[in-house]
Amino acid sequence: MATDAPPPSKSQPQLPTTEEFVEVQESAEFGELRRAHRSFAFPLTIGFIAWYLLYVLLSNYAGDFMGTKVAGNFNVAFILGLAQFLTTFLIAWWYERHSSAKLDPKAEAIKSRMEGGA
């Protein structure tokens, strides 16, 4: 960070110039990495927030439905609450799989090229 004036530390790789960053940013390879991240993370974020809000709104305005007994003393509200836990775990797992397969290799390739070339 230029404005930060950090003291040179032992392991700090030399940072490429702004021109090099702009060049990479405009490259097709980086565009693909950006798309691979955004096309996964953005819709998923909107999706889980919508699902969570739906759950909050149902709690508020669909009391009868939420109070319906499903099994024993478990009602719909409870099951949906537990389903929120489940979807959270699943999304975390899914993102990890996506990142290590699709994002990490692309990011690593660009990084090592930029740092090696600097």
Binding site: L15, T18, F21, Q25, F30, H37, A107, M114, E115
Partner: peptide
């Protein structure tokens, strides 16, 4: 500052220059 944004965007997604 588009140059700075290029830096931030590339760094944030690739880890270039991260320490």
């Amino acid at each position: 500052d588009t140059g700075k944004y290029a830096e931030l965007e590339v760094r944030s997604l690739t880890g270039t220059g991260a320490h």
